[in-house]
């Protein structure tokens, strides 16, 4: 999917907002509460992850809380400078301006339809802007890894650890 010139201009504006403005967006959100157990994702970030997960994974019934917890753990295992980039990504997505102009979503994340969410993922996946492509990559690998790193996901893909070895681990 190609972005129109208008969209590109908008994305350009918003793109520089990501680069330069992550800081002030973040500053305005520092005090947001984190839901129980989460150490990196804020409540707003958790909403973004939980609405995107079923669409990105193609699994409508995926246990969203498990994916959110997995993403939280995955980000915490990244080095600080990379965590800071993920912070900016979520700050931008969760911010109404970022959602509207960068993600291209009119409605709040909670209200966005699967079609709209899928449209957003597709635009970022193949965007002309490296920044948005890398935003897609980050969401893709965080959410993909968070789910498929969990044993609960394995049955559906026909994967099993070798039992004869598992039994002999110390």
């Amino acid at each position: 999917m190609r972005l129109s010139r208008r969209q590109l201009l908008q994305a350009g504006v918003a793109g520089s907002l990501v680069l330069a403005g992550g800081g002030w967006l973040a500053a305005s959100r520092k005090t947001l509460p984190r839901p129980g157990g989460l150490r990196f994702l804020t409540a707003d970030d958790a909403v973004v992850v939980s609405v995107l997960a079923p669409v990105l994974l193609g699994i409508p019934e995926v246990p969203r809380a498990a994916v959110v917890a997995g993403v939280d753990a995955a980000v915490l295992s990244l080095p600080r400078p990379v965590q800071a980039e993920v912070r900016e990504l979520f700050d931008v997505l969760a911010h109404p301006l970022g959602r509207r102009w960068l993600a291209g979503l009119r409605d709040d994340w909670r209200e966005a339809t699967p079609q709209a969410l899928s449209g957003f993922l597709g635009r970022w996946q193949t965007s002309r802007l490296a920044l948005l492509r890398s935003g897609f990559q980050a969401l893709h690998s965080l959410i993909g890894a968070a789910w498929y790193g969990q044993p609960a996901s394995w049955e559906a893909i026909g994967y099993r650890q070798p039992q004869h070895v598992m039994e002999r681990l110390p």
Binding site: L57, G58, S118, L121, S141, A145, G149, Y159
Partner: peptide, 25 residues
């Protein structure tokens, strides 16, 4: 190829992505 690294490395999303993941064996 194991599930997590495959999930992170495969391109795509949505139904196509799920179908490829389920074809892992």
């Amino acid at each position: 190829v194991h599930p997590l690294i495959l999930a992170a490395t495969l391109s795509g999303f949505g139904e196509d992505y799920r179908r490829l993941m389920t074809s892992m064996p």
